[in-house]
Design a protein around this nucleic acid. Structure first.
Lengths: 206, 206
DNA sequence: GTCTATAACTAGATAGAC
DNA sequence: GTCTATCTAGTTATAGAC
């Protein structure tokens, strides 16, 4: 376990939990049990550390997800929207093998990235992983060709919002589900709940 | 224009823009052109200032929205989900008469409140305005009685997510819509785009 | 590569003069 | 009620010894 990786792991956990702005380098280095100065030695700045934490996941997820979306497009002339969104499930859950709580952590980080830090992370992700977005748009277009580019734009952003918001407050939601309905839901349970919702939303009549 | 109101107005604008954590009291008092110490004199703490900013809107919105939801329930034995969500439009847009950019500011603040500050604002709002949530749940239940309490819970939170996320990044989204589609969309345009989406999502087959 | 020490700055909050 | 001045505690970042 190198110092660099100890920092990445600690940062990931704290960022997911309390946001990027809400987490100090002192908390990170303290949890990682490394010296405060190590962050700046290994990463240069807090901003670069944030990028590094996100990149570790994106580099793992991105090829799997692109492949899954291509498969959906190839498997049928007109796939259902549920099929398109279901393509996300396996690549996302695979992050749990990559790292403990990987799926949940990654989705929470994604949520943070869209609301903390005035969108610098959004810019970083969309410019760094454009083929992923294009693959997704292509799959949705094949499933619902009548949807105009403009309506597609809005609905994909609504979907993004549903997902990242749900995930950034998923701990609270799972707690409520347990208290109010005596139901133990994990992150894959939440994903399965959300798919019919977003599929119906994207597929709403124009 | 009292000092207290100058602070509230400045805080509202900055909070909506950069989040609660991302805004310092110095920025607020500087924009309001009042002394730094005035915040603690009038509100006691930053946390209380946040509550005061939100309460000003909630006290304006809450009775109108409750009435609109009651009207939907009374108007039909089985209202459509689009009708239920459309009940939000007028009370929300009325905030623009209450204050310049009121609708947009309020919705962005709501979005911030769910992601910044580890949910203390969520707690404040749900315990302070429970009848609002009950009225909404009752309306959705009348529109879609087959939906179980548990599915209802999830879908309402997904909807909350769609709305607050969209609104907390609505400035960016409206910019993109203008650049990519040469379309000027204002906040009421965004609301009209999102209603079919959330109505279809909540109404998705079980 | 890792440490201590500290620089340089910002935060929220407050005491006390007016 | 409003001001200045300041306190305490936090932040990121870095210089320099080892």
């Amino acid at each position: 376990m190198t110092t660099k990786n100890r920092i990445l792991d600690a940062a990931e956990k704290l960022f997911a939990d309390k946001g990027f702005n809400g987490t100090s380098l002192r908390e990170i280095t303290s949890l990682a049990e490394v010296n405060l100065a190590a962050v700046n030695y290994h990463f240069g700045s807090k901003k670069e550390l944030i990028k590094a934490v996100m990149s570790r996941y994106m580099n793992e997820l991105s090829p799997n997800l692109e492949l899954a979306l291509t498969n959906v497009c190839d498997s049928s002339d007109k796939p259902s929207l549920v099929a398109v969104f279901s393509a996300f499930v396996e690549p996302l859950l695979a992050l749990n093998h990559f790292k403990e709580n990987g799926t949940s952590n990654f989705l929470q980080l994604l949520g943070r990235g869209y609301t903390d830090s005035q969108g610098f992370l959004r810019w970083f992700l969309t410019t760094r992983y454009p083929t992923l977005i294009n693959g997704f748009v292509a799959a949705v277009h094949k499933a619902y060709p009548e949807l105009s580019a403009e309506d597609m734009f809005w609905r994909l952003h609504f979907t993004m919002g549903t997902i990242v918001f749900t995930m950034s407050s998923s701990d609270a939601l799972m707690d409520i589900a347990k208290n109010d309905f005596d139901r133990n839901v994990d992150i894959s349970g939440v994903i399965k709940q959300v798919i019919p919702y977003v599929a119906a939303g994207v597929g709403a009549p124009i």
